[in-house]
Each structure stands twice: as C-alpha cells, then as structure tokens.
Design a protein around this nucleic acid. Structure first.
Lengths: 236, 236
DNA sequence: GGTGTTTCTTACGGATTTCTTACGATTTCG
DNA sequence: CGAAATCGTAAGAAATCCGTAAGAAACACC
C-alpha cells in the first residue's frame, strides 16, 4: 500500500485535484510544478510512477521525460490538454508508457495509474532494461516505441490517426473492438455517430497493409460487434 | 453456507430484488452500484461470485470484468438487458462465466448462481490460474473464452446466433436439448412456433462443421426429443 | 405398405451492417 | 502563397444474416 506517485504540472489546481484523487485510492503523492523540480525529486526520492504534463515552464514534459528515461525505467504517464497534442507525443515517441487527455474523467486516470503499477510490479520488471518494444504478427511488425509499422520488412506510411488505430490493434491482437470503442480510445472523446469515420480509417489502413484489402487477412470485421487484428500463425 | 456474492447494477431496484432472492437461498450479498465501487469491494472483501450488469455509469460491466480478470479468477455472471447485448459480450469475449438476460425469472438466476458456485468449489480451483477454456470433442475444439470453434484445426466461421448454439452444445456434450429449450436459452425469449427457426440454424451449423451434413457425426437428432452434441471417441 | 408425424432442405425477402467512393474542408509543408 | 496530404461526411452499393414458408425426405407405428 501507499505506493509513491509523482505528479507534475504547472497548474496547481490540477495537481491538487489529482492529489486528492490518488490519495483516495491509497497512493502517496509527491508534487512538482515544473520539469526541473520533478527531476530533483526523482533524484532524491523513491517513486513508483510519474504523471507528467507536456506543457510546462522551465523544463517541459517531453524533455523531462527524456531525462527520466536516461536513468530509470519507471512508468511515466503523459498528460496532455488536447487530443491533437498526443499526436505530438506519439510522433516524438519517447518512452512514455501511456497518454491521457487531461480534461477527462478522473476515474479513468486513477484506473490507468492502478493498471500500470500493477503490471509493473506483477511482471516484476523493475528496470528490466529492454522491455519488449516490438510486436510481430505474421507479415506485420510494429515497434511500439517508434510507433512504426512494417509489412514484409517494408515500412508502412501511416498518418497520425491511422497510427493510433494500428497501435490499439497491434497491442491487443485477437481482441474485438467495437467501432465506438475505437473512436473513444483513439480520439479520446465521446463517440457520437462516429462509426462511419472509424470505418473509413479502417478502410485506408487496410489499403496500406493488406495484400488484398477486399479480403483482409489482418484487420477483420466481426459481424455486428466490431473489428479485430487477426492473430496469424506463428512462423517464428 | 453464507457464501458471499457481489451484485453490481446501477438500478437499485434490481440490486434489491436480487439481494432478497439470494438471501432467501442462503447467500450473503454485497452490493455495488457501478464498476468502480465493485472493484473497490473486490479489493477489500472476500467474494465468491460476482453478478454484474453490462450497462452502468462510471465503469461499465465489461470494462470492470476485464479489470476483475486481471487479478482474480472468481466466477462472474454478466447480466444484460437485451439479448442483443449478450452478442456483444460473446463477441468481445472477455472471461465471463455465464450470461443471463436481466428481466427474467428469478429462479433461473438463483439456479445459475448455485450451479457456478458448486462447480467452482467442488473443482476447488480457487485461482487455479489456467482454468480449462478449451473443450475438445473429436475433430472439434471449442474455446470458451474466445468463443471460437475449430474443426481439424481450421477455424469455423460462425455467426453470432450460431456461436451461441454451438456454445450450448459444446458445454453440454451428450445432453439432448429440445428445439424449444435451445430457443429459450439462445434467444432468451419464450419460444413460440420457433422449432423451424432453430432447425434452420442447426442445418447451417452442420454445413459448416460436419464432413457430410446429411449424415451428421456431431450434431445428431434424437427423434421426437431434440438435438445433441455426440461425444466422440477420445483420441488423446 | 400406409399414414401421420417429425425432421430436412432449399430458396427468398427484408433488415441490418459494412463497404466503397467521392468530395469539400482543413492542415501541413515547401 | 500554392500544392499535397489528411480528415470527416454523406450516400449509394454490397455483403451478411436471419426468419419464414413450403415441399421433400425420414421415421415410427400400425
């Protein structure tokens, strides 16, 4: 109990809100208001997880993240104001473990913190060095750190939105996602009449990675339910 | 006696009704009104079985189920308002142990709770890690978690309705089901002049999994009674 | 064998879901 | 600023699934 979480944001209101939230969940919370303070605390204290804002004075979140990565491999969750900003984070693809749009429901934040801590401790990979960053599935190879996809060794040029969808699929092969859930997780907004939008993106992704987009091998539809990334035979 | 059951539903009326019902059967009942409360209670209390609604505010039943599965392997029965919703549950195939349509007769609910608890305790697999999720029968292999059927190693593409029928058969090999019972359990409605409907689905399933659908080896008819999944010789 | 009952088979229409394409708005980048 | 890339919407086309109906076949019993 009482695992230590460091919250970093220049907006004190937000830090306070998150503080209250996480304390209620039983965590011990340390606070910092810019990147430098954060590094300072990390140097002195034992911390199990970091929640950090992207936009900050003195030393911004992404730069701080890089510094953190230089020494430790603790889970870092990046907060960002808008959904578009997460594009930036993804693009820069520094080793953040998760991304959460900021002005959202606190419950989800708490849940993600919990989830990361659990995964981290149970898998016992305290600085396990090379955490698996490549996911292979048949012809496809996805690098979760670089956020790049290869098909038959050839890089696939995906747009930001497409990358996020592929990321979701490659991290959860075999699992079926309703279009509505895809929308929520990729756009980080409530889905409203958005099935068609998702569908068009699916179509475009298929065109880029399937040999025959009309009869997809990888991104399959599950009738009446949603889409899934089909697990292909292992050809180790 | 007095095994603990957690009931989760945002409709307090329903929770109350189930509470009364289960208490009468001798269970101890804990209550929660959304997914987060449920996780909270599960973290603190010893619970033997969970009854959870799919539709809920804050953290819906399916998400909650996933979270539960991350740590414990207790039996979870998913409640859903409509029959179509169970399609989703089946499709998404997260490890629920059973599905019950909500506005139905309380006796059945009690029976299923009892049945699951009995199976669970007698098999004594309190967190036995890998609970058997695959059922083999001759050429057929059915994965209860993924709700997928393989024949001779090849995946069999079943529709939602077909999957539910196959699920019933594979979980109860050798048992004979009258068409009328199949209808009730799959459609979760009263059967009225529905034998033919069931029959057509049986036919379609046979076409997909039998070598010679005209002389089925697996889904056999028991004249004047119903259908059954024939148990085949083990060829371990 | 005949007869009534039960099961099988096939085909079709309607409903729903998914696909596909095109186009205009917006953003990005040189 | 202009060209290219990206994105979301709309709308018609296509695919899938489901239940019904109706005649054929199989069965049981006399």
């Amino acid at each position: 109990m009482g695992e230590r979480v460091l919250v970093v944001d220049d907006d004190r209101e937000i830090v306070k809100a998150i503080d209250i939230l996480l304390r209620k969940e039983g965590y011990e919370v340390l606070k910092a208001y810019d990147g430098l303070q954060a590094l300072d605390i990390l140097a002195r204290e034992q911390v199990r997880l970091v929640l950090i804002d992207v936009m900050m004075p003195r030393l911004d979140g992404l730069s701080a993240l890089m510094r953190i990565r230089e020494r430790a491999n603790i889970p870092v969750i990046v907060l960002s104001a808008k959904s578009e900003e997460t594009d930036k984070v993804l693009g820069l693809s520094m080793g953040a473990h998760d991304y959460v749009a900021k002005p959202h429901n606190p419950q989800e934040l708490a849940a993600r913190v919990k989830s990361h801590l659990r995964r981290f401790t149970t898998l016992g990979d305290i600085h396990a060095g090379a955490r698996a960053s490549e996911i292979r599935n048949g012809r496809l190879l996805y690098n979760t750190e670089e956020r790049t996809l290869y098909a038959d060794g050839e890089p696939v040029r995906l747009t930001a939105t497409e990358t996020k969808i592929v990321d979701l699929f490659m991290r959860n092969p075999g699992r079926v996602f309703p279009a509505e859930e895809i929308y929520r997780r990729v756009w980080e907004e409530e889905a409203f009449a958005s099935e068609n939008t998702v569908m068009v993106h699916i179509r475009r992704i298929r065109e880029k990675l399937e040999l025959n987009p009309k009869e997809p091998e990888y991104i399959k539809v599950v009738w009446g339910i949603g889409y899934k990334m089909e697990k292909q035979e292992k050809s180790n």
